[in-house]
Nucleic acid binder design. Sequence first.
DNA 1: GAAACCAAATCGTCATACTTTTAGGCTGTG
DNA 2: CACAGCCTAAAAGTATGACGATTTGGTTTC
Lengths: 231, 231
Amino acid sequence: MEIQGLPGRLLDELGPAIASGEIPEGAVLRGEELEERFGVSRTVVREAVRILEGMRMVASRRRVGITVQPKSLWDVFDPLVIRWRLAGADRPAQLRSLGSLRVAVEPAAAALAATQATDDDRRQLSSLAVELTVSAREADLTTFLAHDIAFHALVLRASGNEMFAHLGDTVGAVLTGRTEYHLMPHQPEPYAIRLHREVADAICSGNADEAEQAMRTIVTGALAELNQQLG
Amino acid sequence: MEIQGLPGRLLDELGPAIASGEIPEGAVLRGEELEERFGVSRTVVREAVRILEGMRMVASRRRVGITVQPKSLWDVFDPLVIRWRLAGADRPAQLRSLGSLRVAVEPAAAALAATQATDDDRRQLSSLAVELTVSAREADLTTFLAHDIAFHALVLRASGNEMFAHLGDTVGAVLTGRTEYHLMPHQPEPYAIRLHREVADAICSGNADEAEQAMRTIVTGALAELNQQLG
DNA sequence: GAAACCAAATCGTCATACTTTTAGGCTGTG
DNA sequence: CACAGCCTAAAAGTATGACGATTTGGTTTC
């Protein structure tokens, strides 16, 4: 998953710094400067910059240097960009964006899953719903989180749409961030749990409408909660 | 937008070849082989490969080479990946994926736009709807396509969600591809045009529900048409 | 037959030299 | 003074040779 080697290290420094605005839009870096600052060779700097260029976070121009691109050009769907933004000052904005995206995508994915899921998908979904209920009742938040993430990822994957499926990890990052954020205060709401079961049941029985509605209730609820917390 | 220089040229060769499956998943390339095949230096090959690695299309490992990753790992939201897939053998699958994505996202974007759009957005939307109607009536398909793309991109941008906004270009690529595909047969359907006006009016008057419904009708219609054409 | 070892292949990194582009200043002319 | 065109230097782009690190797969040895 991670980019390897020294360029990866460089990326771990530069990416978050740019994502958080510490290195602001329009800033100009010179390759040589980066070489010195990180004690690496030209090769390494260039490869790291190329990757950032691939994400459209920077553009390199002769006689000018490496300029940080406006945020509107960034590949905001790149998992690394999302992670960097979630880790830094942009976190609230990123959470809001992802919240809306979930509201749009997850109900559609649930509806598709009701018709497209394999038998194996349905079995896994069913058992995940049960385990979710159990860990919620036992107030085992760590296990609950893991199951919750797996549940949403599975629905997205079972939709049969590769683009939806790819959002699984991102949604996982949001859920992780969320429980970290309000520091695991209370046990999961019974209502939300019931909705997860409802989604699972609807998908298993091929009821697309019900799956979509239940999922919509879940994600709109999550978005409302988020907006409340962020003000 | 494009990646520059020799690495960019290399990418234009390798990317489509991998995306189309011509270089299949699991295939192993050697850096030196690429140097010879394209007559460029290590530097160039390495930078191009790094970019592909950033898209998770390949992984480079010591003593083994550059291996093409399974499609499920690719950054399917990367604009280049989408373009490469649209241009090659994967085009039907990519169109289907994007169709579902549109059904999920565009109605949500329209609803958001109804509350979030700036006055300027609303003005532009309004006039775009008019121009759309005109070019449709005149059966000027080229202009119509341009306006259609601009319309959908504007709604996505006006939603105020950066992630939605970023799908504007992608949707544009789909629309372009679509009219290229069935070779501009008939003039745009009057019903679809009316729906576009309805979306614009609803957004301008702040009616989120109506905007969402009208947009949903548009994109589900497009998806149905697509599925019909692809069998 | 298994475990330890060794060697070759390949990527990873560094250092250096040369090329290409281009921003920004300089110069000369009307 | 204004403008056009040239010129220079700065920075990225490319090429190449050398060496280091790692991993695979065979080979040796017990």
